[in-house]
């Protein structure tokens, strides 16, 4: 589904990703771990199409097409979802409007009519229950006045409503207490299916107790320096990253 080959990316003239290669198949959950500044967030952003990230070499294929040739909104409509590490607040644009506009944009892309208002609200309320969110959130501005944990839950709610094929979750676990972490993990797990893939970017193994990955990769100095199964995350928890980043130097 996603094939990243020898990806080099610069931000403000500084090379951040330096030959990253990664393949994620449908039905898989991959965890990307690594020390601060290793390029984890850059990878998420560049896949989602954030301006300011310059691809200097390499390719990214998604579902057989050149992902990098698509505008951010086209990537989203094609089923790529980015769960932000720091979701922005947008006072004045309410959550329910954003959800509906986003859902209809994706439906239009697939040649489907706009979602029926009643069906839409039923669906959203259903997903909100799963995420243990108060319905009052719907009429509030996007992330406006939300706590850190509420923002993350709102990201997962959006993901559940939009049902992406490829979810990139950038440190969705940061700032969550253990109860919120479980709720978020449950949300992500409900999305797991043979047609979908999830890439989790995280610092900590604790998220992987709740969302069990098929593959774990260590990103250091802009490249994947080690890949393995779930046991790699446990090893990192014990040993830290130093033993791997020294190899990468």
């Amino acid at each position: 589904m996603l094939k990243v080959d020898n990806l080099h990316v610069s931000v403000a003239g500084k090379a951040v990703l330096k030959g990253l290669t990664l393949e994620v198949n449908a039905g898989e959950v991959h965890a990307i771990m690594g020390p601060n500044g290793s390029g984890k967030s850059t990878l998420s952003y560049v896949l989602a199409g954030r301006p300011g990230y310059e691809v200097t070499a390499g390719t990214v294929r998604y579902d057989g097409q050149d992902l990098l040739a698509l505008a951010p909104e086209e990537r989203a409509r094609a089923g790529v979802f980015l769960g932000f590490q720091y979701p922005v607040e947008i006072p004045g644009v309410n959550n329910v409007y954003l959800l509906k506009a986003a859902m209809n944009a994706a439906r239009k892309h697939r040649g489907l009519p706009e979602v029926d208002a009643f069906e839409f609200l039923t669906l959203v309320k259903d997903k909100m229950k799963l995420m243990q969110m108060d319905e009052a959130f719907l009429s509030r501005g996007v992330n406006e006045g939300f706590s850190g944990g509420e923002k993350k839950r709102n990201e997962i709610l959006q993901m559940l409503v939009l049902e992406p094929k490829l979810a990139l979750l950038d440190e969705t676990d940061s700032g969550l207490d253990i109860d919120a972490l479980k709720i978020v993990a449950r949300g992500v797990n409900t999305l797991r299916s043979p047609e979908r893939a999830v890439v989790l970017v995280t610092h900590y193994q604790r998220l992987l107790d709740h969302i069990v990955p098929d593959r774990v990769h260590v990103l250091a100095k802009g490249r994947i320096v080690r890949s393995g199964d779930r046991s790699l995350a446990l090893e990192l928890e014990k040993r830290g990253y130093d033993w791997l980043t020294q190899d990468a130097a």
Partner: peptide, 23 residues
């Protein structure tokens, strides 16, 4: 970028943000 990343087209996103600004 947040709005674009949700599939909303740039013109609509701009309109939404201007609208929100006046709220």
């Amino acid at each position: 970028f947040y709005l674009l990343s949700r599939g909303i087209d740039p013109d609509t996103a701009q309109g939404l943000l201007k609208w929100a600004f006046l709220e």
